[in-house]
Amino acid sequence: MREIEFRGKIAGAEGFVYGKLLAPLASGNAYIAYDVNEVGSFAYISRSEKVDPETVDQYTGLKDKNGKKIFEGDIVNCKFFDKKITGLIEFIEYMWAVNDRKNRRLYQLNEVSNIEVIGNIHENPELMEGME
């Protein structure tokens, strides 16, 4: 079973927090608990942070070639057979995909190799230039 984890940029501060999403995004608020102790069917939350709902991304369950967790919203370099791709990780049509916006192609995340996270759309929007 894959690990369910989210990240979000801390509201009014620098950096991200990683953990369990507490508040539904539809409410306009989002909190991520990052110090959670689970005992049986109970979860005890020691610490949480309010995050910007626009920056909440889900973990794909996969890691890049350097062991870094791959999240929705990450910008990656990878290969599809012999073709080098720079794309955005998105959840599309019930699957995690690398969206190569430049060539208007989608590649299933499990079909690409040598994937490396080079940034994310929240902290590194300049990496998206040339992809549109």
Rank of each mutant, 00 (worst) to 15 (best):
A13Y: 12
T55K: 08
E116A: 03
G19W: 08
A30F: 11
I45L: 03
K65F: 01
E72I: 14
P24L: 06
N37Q: 15
E49A: 13
G73F: 05
D100Q: 15
F16G: 06
E3S: 04
G87F: 01
L106R: 04
L127S: 10
E126T: 09
P24H: 14
G130L: 04
A43W: 06
Y94F: 07
E38F: 02
C78I: 05
K20D: 07
K50S: 07
D52F: 09
K20I: 10
G87N: 03
G40L: 05
P53G: 08
L62M: 14
S27K: 04
L21V: 02
Q58D: 02
V56R: 12
K63Y: 13
R101Q: 12
V112S: 10
A11W: 07
N37P: 00
A11R: 06
N120S: 07
A43V: 11
K63T: 14
I4R: 12
V117T: 14
A23R: 02
K65R: 15
A33E: 11
V56D: 04
D35A: 10
Y59V: 07
M1G: 12
V56A: 05
A26P: 00
P24T: 13
E126D: 12
A11S: 06
M1H: 02
E111D: 15
A33F: 05
S48G: 04
G8R: 04
E72C: 11
S27M: 06
R104W: 00
G19M: 03
L21N: 09
H122S: 08
N110M: 03
K84D: 11
S48W: 14
G40N: 12
E38H: 04
E90S: 08
T55I: 08
M128K: 11
Y59L: 14
D35N: 13
